[in-house]
Design a protein around this nucleic acid. Sequence first.
DNA 1: TTTCCAATTCGGAATGACTACGATTTACTC
DNA 2: GAGTAAATCGTAGTCATTCCGAATTGGAAA
Lengths: 139, 139
Amino acid sequence: MNFDIAMERLKSEGFKRTPSREAILRLLEREDRYLSAGDVRKALADQHPKMSQDTVYRNLSSFSEMKILEETELGGERKFRMHCNRHGHHHHFICMECGRTEELDVCPMEQVSRALPSFVIDDHKFEVYGQCPDCRTAG
Amino acid sequence: MNFDIAMERLKSEGFKRTPSREAILRLLEREDRYLSAGDVRKALADQHPKMSQDTVYRNLSSFSEMKILEETELGGERKFRMHCNRHGHHHHFICMECGRTEELDVCPMEQVSRALPSFVIDDHKFEVYGQCPDCRTAG
DNA sequence: TTTCCAATTCGGAATGACTACGATTTACTC
DNA sequence: GAGTAAATCGTAGTCATTCCGAATTGGAAA
């Protein structure tokens, strides 16, 4: 997903095009990794010093609900990144130093479904944490 | 893991045996599912009305560090359960209604390691969320 | 058994992420 | 260009968690 497609999605769902939303989505497109609401605020402090917390949180949540963003919870914080749609379903490796992510194709949910036939499965989370090659050589 | 083994582990690591620690571990052994610090406080309110938050949080964290408990983060809260050691490495299905958990044997980490040879992998999380058979028929 | 001290707990205040809300501003429709 | 609902601002409130100084206590040593 990129900025333009995200803005189209907003329009089609009846959301207004505002400077705040543009700035948040442009940032997330550029960064291409998980950012917290605080990260977003700091990154936009120069260009949008008056953007309130409320605006950041509310928009990140809205974007996540309408699948423009992917969301996870890490270290006690909600984090968001532009939704990748190269493949359909996927999971991520997340570098704990720089936040870089790498898409993973493996997902064991078919096996799980077979193993739990009488359970209703609504959701699942699979994430791998570590150090990316760049941070490893830098460290 | 059960209460007695947990107390042995505490002793061997130089921790004192206190009424708070006994009560917390007895509760977690009995419940056999993920509880938050708040859940623990409420459950112990009758027998230990003066147990402070600090005591609950500090002990849950200590127990988690020394692998007496398993820990996860769910709905913005840290949750803890007695460590299962029937099998070695495993993951959980978690019922979002009653908190019941079911151990899963599948884990795709060998595939992931092969797919990311130049990455350092420190940790991973795989959890499945839904409704257990009891809650399904009850609903 | 008594003494002693570090570990533990208590009580409450501080932190930090997140949410709520009334007042003001703004994007979009007509 | 005017009107209106949506969006934002600023600030205060909530909730989980952590911190801290003072008081208590488990368990080793005398």
